[in-house]
Design a protein around this nucleic acid. Structure first.
Lengths: 260, 260
DNA sequence: CGTACCTTTGATAGAGTTCAAGAACGGTGG
DNA sequence: CCACCGTTCTTGAACTCTATCAAAGGTACG
């Protein structure tokens, strides 16, 4: 449902004359970035996914040993040796980086089917740390096995998609305003929850306002205020960690500065 | 010279009790992110590099056909098919992404030895566009060849390092203040110019104030004002595009909020 | 069942944007 | 070689968005 519905709801007329864009005269879909492989349903992917595993689904196979990680425990730490990657089987993680002076930033949230730890491949040790936001389980992918042709091909795609996500986050942090950032964040999260097969447009946030704020570059107070405003405007229903998206196209309009 | 000098200049006492950090009782180096493979000289890498090619140096080999790209021309466009990667032989590129509504953001600057186009591997088409900021030359790495074991291993590392860079940019955009961002940007750029074997602490910016601002999430006016302030403070000497870093540790102090 | 954490909301202040205008630069053609 | 043009850069002034400070509920977990 969500896929085609979202796609349909967001169809708009093509924009005239932006020289450096594609020239195909097709109706344009409102997305932060188009996902050619998966079309409009993937519209918001770019903002929060390494959607590779989900689509290609090899990492999550039963051939790997699993590991349980309890809430608030770390899967790996910044500076720690990277001897394997991890595919999230169930649960929820955040990853974050930290400055010398103690300032830190959440760089991603990760759920079922997504791959963690790829920042450690290049140097052999992790730049970020990954922490479980609820009791979780991961598949361990030993670094040694990353040389296997099948896995290598998979990994190439997953990492590439992760790069696309990173670009979208840069765009969000560098260009969007506060309300646009939260709208984009919520739409993306909703999208991913749906694809994870979990819920529809109603879900429980696994992270705090502060963690959301860190990820999208806002203070926790601003995030809280925006939740309230979105509720007043009828876009969502919130009570603490429970969120329900009431008006996807409204949120999309907020994200893209379309006044209605 | 630069490597050890920078490393030495920036040595500081280890910080007490940050629980989630590494436990080794070594003196700490002032860096946004440590690069375990290349040590302190790589301190600022994370902010602007896919330093893979430079270190592993296989992509830049003469075995690939080359292509010239004139200033202001694009190497590839957003949405365009990704049938190859590109290693910069000489010249300078920017890559950027764009929103439906026309808002865009520079997501990276790329010079000698760095690899472009990896965002297209996952989906088969590019999310970003790459534009030459001066007459440049690249090696073309056909997508087909990315399955070769040697290249695949290289690519894994390069992409991973690019992910680390992306994390650093997120940190910069989400957490640092204006002056801290520009300081980080300048230090990183200087570092990369030095490593590219080009100049010492004096170089010519290839990009405009607007492009810098877009990359670090500031308006062009703010960038210009900060250049002036850094000059007044004796950290740099600027005249238009010519920049000379006079006080690396001063800039580093600005970046890390160390008051002196 | 109490305590620590999380969330909400208000008031204030500050950093950075926006608008505006002039100056400096670099490339082009006479 | 010089003059001209468009682009880029600098600087000022006013404004706006968001952070910060503060204080009061609410929740959840031990």
């Amino acid at each position: 449902m969500a896929a085609s519905q979202v796609a349909t709801a967001l169809l708009v007329a093509p924009q005239p004359g932006v020289a450096s864009r594609s020239e195909a005269p097709q109706p344009r879909v409102h997305t932060l970035f188009r996902c050619p492989t998966h079309g409009a349903s993937c519209s918001l992917h770019a903002l929060g996914l390494p959607c590779g595993a989900k689509h290609d689904g090899a990492f999550a196979g039963a051939e790997f040993t699993r590991k349980r990680v309890k809430r608030a425990e770390s899967l790996y730490r910044a500076g720690g040796i990277c001897d394997s990657l991890y595919a999230v089987c169930n649960g929820f993680f955040k990853s974050s980086v930290m400055l010398e002076d103690g300032r830190g930033q959440v760089t991603g949230f990760h759920m079922h089917g997504e791959v963690l730890g790829m920042d450690g491949i290049g140097t052999g040790s992790h730049a970020a740390e990954a922490i479980a936001l609820e009791d979780s389980e991961v598949s361990i992918i030993p670094a040694a096995r990353l040389q296997e042709p099948t896995l290598q091909r998979q990994l190439q795609k997953v990492m590439s998609r992760e790069l696309v996500r990173a670009q979208a986050v840069m765009m969000m942090l560098g260009t969007l305003r506060a309300e646009e950032r939260l709208a984009a964040f919520l739409l993306n999260l909703s999208q991913r929850f749906v694809e994870g097969g979990l819920s529809s447009n109603e879900f429980r946030l696994r992270m705090t306002r502060e963690e959301i704020g860190s990820y999208i570059g806002l203070s926790l107070e601003t995030v809280s205020r925006l939740f309230s405003r979105f509720q007043d405007d009828g876009h969502i229903a919130v009570r603490q960690k429970h969120v329900r998206i009431l008006d996807v196209s409204g949120l999309t309009a907020v994200m893209l500065r379309i006044d209605d």
